[in-house]
């Protein structure tokens, strides 16, 4: 059942359109980085007295595929747009499967043949596999395409203040971030699927993943009006902080191992509690 469900997800129109749409922020980011590169290049040509030519030369000759890749994955705007598009696609697509199955004849046909709990577990397992494939393919396509388009030089210059940016280090950071993104989407999958047993409105269920992204931001703003310190503590639950922590470590003080750990522990507990409540509800109300 897992692989049949996975095939169904892969063939969904919304998933395909969403996956293609996710490359729009990449194009904008690449264009932005290229414009910045052109600006430095023109500085070099102008030879202005207030410009350090050695550094400018190093930037111009060191801009390669790795610069474009790292600029995109460490940006708090374009990369987060990818996260939002993905959450919307998952929320309105694959995360709704469980709710839809329980409310139509096809789903009822499945649940008369398969145990409801087992059926839902295999459905979430296929969602996990789909998310993994989605994110892995996204990272793989971007990295390979940009490396082919802009070959890596021996003197790579990044926009992140890393002292010795080697290809190995950059790829390791990207892999870590990729798994962090996958974990975040998995947590969203558990939360949405579990809440779909308690909320009987398809639109509310569809926006739950987006609420996970935006609710902490709103909460921070409201809380900090009453107590600045409280807002500061809640800021650890903002997904941007967690998803970019691996790169922010190089460009900011106060970014520690604790920042993503707090985020993961909190949302794992939330997902765990909801999963247990959902399990009890299934055992009580379904076959």
């Amino acid at each position: 059942m897992i692989f049949q469900e996975l095939k169904r997800y892969l063939k969904m129109k919304l998933s395909i359109i969403g996956f293609v749409l996710c490359f729009v922020p990449v194009l904008i980011s690449v264009l932005g980085t290229y414009m910045e590169y052109s600006e430095f290049k023109s500085e070099l040509a102008l030879n202005s007295s207030d410009v350090n030519m050695d550094v400018t030369r190093k930037i111009v000759y060191g801009t390669d595929g790795l610069t474009y890749i790292m600029s995109y994955f460490s940006s708090s705007d374009m990369f987060m747009i990818f996260i939002i598009i993905s959450l919307f696609v998952f929320g309105a697509g694959i995360f709704l499967t469980g709710y839809k199955n329980r409310n139509n004849g096809f789903g009822n046909m499945i649940y008369t043949r398969v145990d409801t709990f087992k059926g839902n577990v295999s459905m979430i397992a296929s969602q996990f596999m789909y998310i993994f494939l989605f994110v892995f393919a996204y990272y793989f396509i971007i990295v390979t395409t940009l490396i082919i388009l802009f070959p890596i030089t021996s003197h790579t210059n990044l926009t992140i203040p890393m002292d010795n940016p080697t290809i190995f280090l950059c790829l390791s950071l990207l892999i870590i971030q990729m798994f962090m993104v996958i974990l975040f989407f998995w947590i969203c999958a558990i939360i949405t699927n579990a809440l779909s047993f308690f909320i009987n409105n398809i639109f509310v269920i569809a926006i739950i993943p987006l609420l996970v992204e935006f609710l902490p931001l709103v909460l921070c703003s409201v809380l900090s009006d009453f107590n600045r310190q409280a807002g500061h503590y809640v800021s650890g639950l903002i997904p941007d902080v967690y998803l970019l922590a691996v790169f922010d470590k190089y460009s900011m003080d106060n970014v520690t191992l604790l920042t993503p750990v707090i985020f993961i522990v909190f949302y794992s507990v939330v997902a765990g509690v909801l999963a247990v409540l959902c399990y009890k509800k299934i055992k009580k109300e379904y076959i």
Binding site: N52, V55, I59, L158, I160, P161, S251, M252, D253
Partner: peptide
């Protein structure tokens, strides 16, 4: 207003570091 570095993002109560600083000494 001509750019002399790459952009870096800022957060509350912390120090952020930017790169590609092409400023010349004495200016």
């Amino acid at each position: 207003g001509a750019s002399r570095s790459s952009a870096t993002k800022l957060k509350g109560n912390t120090t952020s570091y930017g790169k590609n600083n092409t400023c010349a000494i004495g200016y």
